[in-house]
Every structure is written in structure tokens, then in C-alpha cells.
Design a protein around this nucleic acid. Sequence first.
DNA 1: CACTCGTACTTGAAACTTCAAGCAATGCTT
DNA 2: AAGCATTGCTTGAAGTTTCAAGTACGAGTG
Lengths: 173, 173
Amino acid sequence: MATKHEGAPGPSEEPRWLSDEEQQIWRAYLHATMLLDDHLDRQLQRDAKLPHLYYALLVQLAEAPRRRMRMTELAKQAKITRSRLSHAVARLEKNGWVRREDCRSDKRGQNAILTDEGAEVLAQAAPGHVTAVRQALFDRLTPEQQKSLGEIMKIVAEGLQPCEAGADLPWLR
Amino acid sequence: MATKHEGAPGPSEEPRWLSDEEQQIWRAYLHATMLLDDHLDRQLQRDAKLPHLYYALLVQLAEAPRRRMRMTELAKQAKITRSRLSHAVARLEKNGWVRREDCRSDKRGQNAILTDEGAEVLAQAAPGHVTAVRQALFDRLTPEQQKSLGEIMKIVAEGLQPCEAGADLPWLR
DNA sequence: CACTCGTACTTGAAACTTCAAGCAATGCTT
DNA sequence: AAGCATTGCTTGAAGTTTCAAGTACGAGTG
């Protein structure tokens, strides 16, 4: 904050600072997302002994065709790096919730597969989790606000997607 | 998922699962927050060599009366645990952006103080950061959406606040 | 004053994430 | 078919966060 006047490094001279209203919105966003993520993390850690992200991975696998998915695809859907996924799956594998399998068509490939034990953990954890999500989010918002939230979040997500749509039109970048 | 029928552990028998619309909203939320947080983290790590949260701490200190704040107060405002803050300040101190000072009135207390070097780092990083926030969020939303987002996030944050308002009316809990 | 409880903060270990290499298989190019 | 970039995934180390103690001071009570 305060006035700036350097001319050397920045991409532009003077950015448009956030107005008071914008700052309020931005801080509310930061606080809400932080508190909600912490809240859900603790809830799941307490009830199912796994962090929120790991839970999300199990959900993805549970919904996948034969309860299995290629690592890269899973990473893409979960919006995380392959490295992070590797570590996460390693942990889930150690717990017995997931196992790996070589891919036939591509010898480099790996499939992550949800085990029955994994599905069981998910079934146990899911009710408490949706309840928490409801209490923290949906129950507090009007239907209009819910709709609005969905639209806003879709816009933001699309804007940050590493060129999903149009990825097959690289000349447009 | 699947039908449940245990009577022992859960708080309730059968939760209200999320409808299709609700699921869409929830996933959009998860994706957007994940992508945005990653995006800002990388931007700040690249441009200022610090994670987003640490940047936020410097901002809080910069805005505080004499560029200083009690640890607990800082933790409260930043919505993080005291433990996390301790580690964070230790790192910032090692970098020379922050220093500590004992509190006179309460010998248990510590003040975190933003140094001139810290203020400098902040001044360097701030323009790029607001630009990133604008590009990812504000520039993509209509004024109505911005307003709506602010209202929604305030509601959510208040709902998860560890009893801030009304904390002095404990009998109401 | 002694006791006890709560507050302010720190610490170390374990868990998680990131980053930069790394390896092996694949695909493109000549 | 040989060379070279790319893709798919993993790994180890460094940084961050969480969790469960732990220390030290302050405040309330008898």
C-alpha cells in the first residue's frame, strides 16, 4: 500500500488498486474460503482420518467407470499436479483405500483403483461430509445466492483453467 | 453414496444428499478456490519468494497502527492457528521481513513487527498481486456478481467464525 | 499466599505440498 | 532406424501445516 514510483521491474507502471468495496469483497472471500477449507479438513480428519483433498480423490474414483482412472486424468479432474497426486495415491495405497495397476495400452501409464475398503471409508465419511457442507454453505444461502455462487465460481474456474477449452486450437493463444 | 443403515455412530440416520444443481455449484466452488489459490501462490512465490499466506501477514502488519501486532491478534485476523503463525513468523524473521518484540504489559505476549525490508518487499510485490487478483476475479465479474460474491462470502465466513460476535454472550450458545 | 485454571506463545515430529530432477515409454522427424 | 522432443509418472529434498505437548505468565478463588 502507500504510493509507489519505481520504474524498473514491474510489468506496468501503476496498477489499479482495489477500491474499498473490492477490498471488502476480497477479504471476505479469503476469510470464507480459508475457514471453510479448514473446517472441512478437520471434519474429515476427525471422522475419516483423511484430508479433504484425499476424500475428493476417492469420490472421483468412485464415480469413474470401473472405479479406476489414469493418474493424469485424475490429477486433471482434481485440479492438482501429478506430483501431488503421486504422493497422495502412495499414501492412500498404504492405507489400502486405493491400489495401482499398470495400463495395458500404454506401458508408462498407471491406473488408480478404488478398493472395496476405500469405498467403505467413503460410504462412512460421506454423510457427515455433506452435512458439514450443507451447514456451512447451502443452508445459509438463498436459492438465488446459490445460483449466483455457482455462476461466479464457474467463471473464475474457467478463467484459470490451463487452457482446457481451446487446447486443441493452440494457434489461438 | 449407497444406502446406509447403521444406527450407532452417525449424528443422523440419512443425510440430505446434494442435488445435481447443488453438486455443480459445490464442484465449481472447489475448483475455483483451488485454482485461484494455487495461481496466487505461484505468482507470489515467483515474484516475491513467499507464499500467499505470508504475504497476507505482511499486509496485516503494514496496516496495523505502529506496524506491529500481538501474535494472537494477528492469528485471529489472518484466520490461522497460533501454531501456524509461530512457524510463519519464524520464517519471516529469518528473512528479515519481520522481527519480534516482547510485550511490556503482559510478559507472555509478543509483538510481530514489520521491518523496513518487509515493507519494501510488500511494496515490490503488491502491484503484481493486485493485478493478478483483478485478472483472475474482478475483471471477469459484473458489478452485481461482485456484490453478490461479497455478501455470500461474508455470510459463510460469519457462520464459521469461532463465535466472534456474541462471544461475550456465552449463554446464547 | 497457595491452588488452580486459563491465556500467550513455542516447539518437535509427522503429514502434506512443492519444486526440480529423473526415468522410461511414446511419438515425431528425418 | 536413429535422434530428439514429449508424455506419464515417480522420487527426494526443502518448505509448510497440523497436532499434541510443553513452558511461562496471569487471574480468580478460598
